[in-house]
Design a protein around this nucleic acid. Structure first.
Lengths: 110, 110
DNA sequence: TGCCTATATGTCGGATATGACATATACTGC
DNA sequence: GCAGTATATGTCATATCCGACATATAGGCA
């Protein structure tokens, strides 16, 4: 939506866009979940390909085996922050992240 | 490093890889900071291009003007999580994130 | 079977992030 | 100068996350 059009709608407040906004928010949530899962898979793939156990990886990350397990399981108690930090910590480059994220489908209904 | 080689080194514990690990960790931190900044810029760009004020964006995100300001400033109190969630919430697609992240330089010295 | 290793799950105290509010700064047009 | 608007900064109570620990489950092997 262009700014001119939006400027006209703005005065009407949330009532105008509520349904659309609702969809956007739930889509956003779905996208976040998928992102978390994609990063989870990346981390597990990296670990197994390097022949490490969760305990060993945890030591590298200065974390614990249980948290590594939760990271790899996409547990909701794990933030995208932690996943990204972990991937960087094991040597992943921004490019690698970009590739992983870019492979997610674009499900956003606008 | 391949898993066979690593397996040999494993027994020696942290002493072997400490310097390398240190570099990796600080690189990881730097990468995270850059990522935060890149996402910050994306968010501000999106907002200004849509002719919204921080207050209006905050309402969309169910957040506050001050937090939006901090997001856009790359404030350390703002997590990557929140930035990503916000971008998704305004309709960004995984592809858009991927493009933003991919543009970061790969500074990791391995 | 019992033992060992790897992974998963539940919980908890302390740490960090969040929204909200107050306030400050900056830039308009009057 | 002074309103009005937009953005920045500081603080705080609450919410959420994190590492750690305990414990459970699963598979291999003697």
């Amino acid at each position: 939506m262009k700014s001119a059009k939006r400027a006209k709608l703005r005065a009407h407040g949330w009532a105008v866009g509520s349904a659309k906004e609702f969809l956007k928010l739930s889509n956003a949530e779905a996208a976040l979940v998928e992102l978390r899962l994609a990063l989870s898979r990346s981390l597990r793939t990296w670990r197994t390909e390097h022949g490490l156990s969760q305990v060993e990886l945890a030591r590298q990350l200065k974390s614990s085996q249980s948290r590594v397990a939760k990271m790899e399981a996409g547990d909701p108690s794990v933030s995208v922050d932690l996943l990204v930090r972990s991937l960087f910590a094991v040597g992943a480059k921004p490019r690698d992240l970009a590739r992983t994220i870019g492979q997610l489908e674009d499900r956003v209904a606008v």
